[in-house]
Amino acid sequence: MKKGPSLFNVVSVTLGFAFLYLPIILLVIYSFNSGRNVAIWAGWSTKWYVAMVQNQQLLDAAWVTLRVGLLSATVATVLGTMAALTLVRHGRFMGRTLFSGMVYAPLVMPEVITGLSLLLLFVAINFDRGFWTVTIAHITFSLCFVAVVVQSRLVTFDRSMEEAAMDLGCPPFKTFFVITLPIILPAIIAGWMLAFTLSLDDLVIASFTTGPGATTLPMRIYSAVRLGVTPEINAVSTVLIAVVTVGVVAASLITKRQEAERQRAERLAGAAP
């Protein structure tokens, strides 16, 4: 049997990654273009970043997006973790099928339907649309993503540690916070980050559920993009890409190190007489 990747595998993976990354790289490079035309390179410049920082509308929208993202991701993480615990730990209960349906369906639900239905709910109950409606909408769809991420960690969870703690007289509530939570924490952090980026990213659902004074960054970008490509939007995009990339890479490095430390601790514990 041949060892190592074949030429076909190397080529397909390389082409695949080139396809995934080339558009993003081009976008980043052209955000430093000093000319207005997107296809003609006119030399390096950071003037579009200066223009971006001076654009008050853009900054306001970024502030709204940040607040919605932080709040919705945090609430969605709490609710999503609870939903994951329910799905993994509770065998049969009344309405389980309905519950798992409500957790999985939003993952694939077209955004236009989710957005429209939430808006019509807010109108029907006469809820003033704005910051809070966007936040509620974002909590609703991102909690399902958190649930799936946390659930995949819970499924491989070794329950003997919890049982040991409870056998030693630790109350269930404390057991959860001392044993269970630290072990599933990487998944919860990943879930939070996913919820945050989903919120940061969402255009369709926010457009439906927003009201006056709560224009989010994707909505601003969208209305600018409809008029064509501008280097200023490239600059905003580059900043967003940089923030997300740094966040994701840092988080994955931290979890990797924690995992390595945990494994070392387990080895040490195993080696002890």
Binding site: P23, V38, D201, L203, P218, I221, G228, T245
Partner: peptide
């Protein structure tokens, strides 16, 4: 790339595919 904004990734293609694009 999935973490980076969907809207931005779609937008990147406008600059590539347009008539005067890259």
């Amino acid at each position: 790339p999935f973490w980076t904004s969907f809207l931005i990734r779609v937008y990147a293609w406008i600059g590539i595919l347009s008539r005067e694009g890259l």
